[in-house]
Amino acid sequence: MYRHASRRLIQALGDGGRRRSFSTDLPAASSEDAAFVEAWRKVAPSIDPPKTPLAFMKPRPPTPSSIPSKLTVNFVLPYQSEISNKEVDMVIVPATTGQMGVLPGHVATIAELKPGVLSVHEGNEVTKYFVSSGFAFIHANSVTDIVAVEAVPVDRIDPSLVQKGLADFTQKLNSTTTDLEKAEAQIGVDVHSALNAALSG
Rank of each mutant, 00 (worst) to 15 (best):
I83G: 04
P49A: 00
L103Y: 11
A34F: 10
A35F: 04
Q11F: 07
P49S: 00
P94T: 04
P50W: 00
H106R: 06
D48N: 09
K51A: 07
M57C: 10
P68N: 14
R19Y: 06
S46M: 04
D89M: 07
D33M: 08
F75M: 08
A29G: 06
K51Y: 07
F22L: 13
I47D: 03
V88R: 00
S23W: 10
V107K: 04
L26H: 06
S84H: 12
P68C: 13
Y79G: 02
K70I: 08
F75R: 01
S66K: 14
A28G: 06
E38S: 14
S66N: 09
P50G: 00
R60Q: 11
S31Q: 14
L54A: 15
M90K: 13
V93F: 10
L54W: 04
M57P: 00
S69D: 14
L71Y: 09
T52Q: 11
L71E: 07
S21C: 04
G14R: 04
K86P: 04
I83D: 03
G98N: 00
T97D: 09
P61W: 02
P61T: 09
T72A: 03
S81C: 09
I10L: 12
R20L: 15
K58C: 07
R19I: 09
I10N: 10
K86W: 08
T63K: 05
N85A: 13
A12M: 05
V107H: 07
S66V: 15
A12E: 06
S30M: 11
I83Q: 08
S21T: 15
K86C: 06
I47R: 13
E87K: 10
S46Y: 11
L71Q: 08
S23R: 12
T24F: 11
G16L: 06
